[in-house]
């Protein structure tokens, strides 16, 4: 069922609201974690859902429901962050680490080109349990901020602008985070294809 239909009945029918919670809980948790850290994120998401329920009648549909919910959880997390006087370190852009660039010669051409992969579809890779375990490890190897940017972009389909607002960084920084993260995962997958292990 589409969001629009669910929103229309959600205030009177809690089953409809529950479907929305199930649909958007994950992305909200990623956003909350990126702002306030793991320990308080679930609590913040709960508060955000309560706020969403109380304000649902005011939702006019000018943005998508997903964007509206992300704004709510983002504001909740930032308010909570101020209350807790916590600081979140932003250190991912301080170095000029260049992923993959050691694989090019001084003429700009490949010195170590990509190897041929055995599994050439996502389904073939993801149906391999060993690979699925490895992928979780690869994601955890990324910095919190890089993982958040990649997850929001590639798993949840958020726009660069939305990710900038959530992380409080510039668009070019978000591009760098996503570029590096994708290439790190790329190199891990390449290694998995060659060796069959993480």
């Amino acid at each position: 069922m589409e969001d629009k239909q669910l929103i229309a009945s959600a205030l009177d029918d809690h089953r409809a609201f529950k479907i929305l919670v199930e649909r958007y809980y994950s992305v909200m948790l990623v956003v909350a974690k990126s702002i306030i850290g793991d320990s308080l994120a679930e609590e913040v998401v709960q508060e955000a859902w309560l706020a969403a329920y109380n304000n649902l009648s005011k939702f006019e549909g000018r943005s998508s429901l997903k964007t509206w919910l992300i704004t709510i959880v983002s504001n909740e997390a930032k308010t909570r962050l101020r209350k807790e006087s916590k600081t979140v370190s932003i250190g991912d852009f301080s170095d000029d680490e260049s992923v993959l660039y050691d694989r090019f010669g001084s003429d700009g051409h490949w010195s170590k080109p990509p190897s041929s992969w055995h599994n050439e579809t996502p389904d073939a890779l993801l149906s391999n349990q060993q690979f699925s375990r490895c992928l979780k490890k690869y994601m955890l190897k990324l910095s919190e901020q890089a993982r958040t940017a990649l997850t929001l972009k590639d798993m949840h389909g958020l726009s660069l602008d939305e990710i900038c607002n959530i992380l409080g960084v510039t668009a070019s920084n978000v591009r760098v985070l996503i570029h590096r993260s994708r290439h790190k995962i790329f190199e891990h997958i390449e290694k998995f294809q060659e060796t069959g292990s993480c």
């Binding site: 994950s26 992928l135 590639d154």
Partner: peptide, 14 residues
Amino acid sequence: YLQLTVNVVRQSES
């Protein structure tokens, strides 16, 4: 392969 990487992340279970 980079596109495959993006698709793998997209389709992986959160």
